[in-house]
Amino acid sequence: MSVDLSTTYLGLRLRNPIVVAACPLTADVDSLRSLESAGARAAVLPSLFEEQIEHDEMQLHELYERYAAFTAESSSFMPVRRDYNTGPDAYLRHIETAKAAVGIPLIASLNGTSK
């Protein structure tokens, strides 16, 4: 005799109500696969924080600016990379790989303020 554990959550049809909350476990694709095979039927990805994006961007800016043009022999210390990904790209990539890796619904999470 099997028990029907299916439910609906936020409009998503889930086979059981076990949903992994946002945490480092859902940041890793291998770990998501394990969670899926262990029976989790949905997962919330870790939040992408507005502060995180801002921090990364300002850190990159600081990296290039702090030691720029302070001595005649070196106008910079880091080669300039035009493809540095600040912002949400890494997160979007994670969603993409995660979606390809597991069949269960994934819920992304954003944390920020609107002005």
């Binding site: 994006i53 801002e54 990364d56 961007e57 300002m58 990159l60 800016h61 290039y64 035009r82 540095y84 600040t86 912002g87």
Partner: peptide, 12 residues
């Protein structure tokens, strides 16, 4: 100059 570094750098 700063576009590639991100929105927050530009905004600030």
């Amino acid at each position: 100059s700063y576009g590639k570094r991100g929105e927050s750098v530009l905004k600030k």
